[in-house]
Write a protein that binds this DNA or RNA. Sequence first.
DNA 1: TTACTTTTGTGACGATCGTCAAATGACAAC
DNA 2: GTTGTCATTTGACGATCGTCACAAAAGTAA
Lengths: 190, 190
Amino acid sequence: MFHTLHKMLSAIRPITPDEWLTFTSCLAEKNFPAKTVCLSAGQICRGLYFIEQGAVRSYALKDGQEICNHFYFENEFASDFESLTLQQPSKHTLEALEETRIVYCDREKMLALYQHAPVFESIGRAIVEQMMIRQNAYAVLFTLYSPTERYQFVVEHHPELVRRVPLQYLATYLGVARETLSRIRGRISG
Amino acid sequence: MFHTLHKMLSAIRPITPDEWLTFTSCLAEKNFPAKTVCLSAGQICRGLYFIEQGAVRSYALKDGQEICNHFYFENEFASDFESLTLQQPSKHTLEALEETRIVYCDREKMLALYQHAPVFESIGRAIVEQMMIRQNAYAVLFTLYSPTERYQFVVEHHPELVRRVPLQYLATYLGVARETLSRIRGRISG
DNA sequence: TTACTTTTGTGACGATCGTCAAATGACAAC
DNA sequence: GTTGTCATTTGACGATCGTCACAAAAGTAA
């Protein structure tokens, strides 16, 4: 059970069978059909989502429009980390892009676990570090690169985004209008 | 010694005198006159900078131009977190904006310390969480807001940036040309 | 003070992007 | 198959921003 998650976490820090057994009590498997909501904006995020299969987008509303700020795929942790950390209402909605299978890690249970099995605090830190690096790379896109360069960066470094994310969502993620991204793509391909 | 840092950290998690004593062996005070470099791009970042007094900017080079991605002030931790975490050459340079007094926390020593005093791993996680939330807020600025709205956001939520950071640096941070930020400012002030 | 350097502000103009509208394409339900 | 819905593409046009050039202001050193 939770085999891929175990593989992921034990790659960060070695986990004893006992530790793992305790940890599984924090976990629950959940399924989300395509286009269903995993976490609603306004709701307080109570846990971390590990994606076993599928894809999830995170978006905020701006003048009624959905602006994506992240896409998550297999073997990644998804969440609204601000809501999760501060236990404040989430500004973002998490929605399955495809049929998605998720392992949900309850925050309260994990915090309690940190006392008895410090290795998970260490793993938690490593996960947050990865997310921070990712966030930073995303932010830097906007100051260093033009819209075309941002798209090329994604094509080069995150081709799965281009393959699996509808253009309209990717456009908001890159901070341009749908039409502009369509034209950028046309210019590059042809 | 390191009084403000102690106050900051013990507000995150209670620290015993013994733990603190061990921790101080990781620390060293450093002074940087205005416009001097704390960390050069290309260099591997070996520690965390806690700013006791002063201000620091972080910037990357793009076509010979310095593009700022962060400003750090009193009682904040500065670093190139990507370089620090992955121990890769930094893409950013950290430079003192003013005369700056820093407590430098050595990474190697801190990692060793985590074994004996897990509270610091917990504190480390909290610091990284804060940085991640900050990074995310910064990234979201670009997709949700126009240049003018971005400037207004900074005026509202981070007025110290407007007061202490030269316009030319703030402009690159907001992803606009110096001239554009000058005009935005003129329009808003009247 | 003057002279010099750096920073900020202004004007003109071209390039890029957003917006609106319509056409085309893709896809699911029937 | 047909229909209806949604996504993407294309065109036209106006708004915004970047760039260049230069002026004004502020800061620095002698």
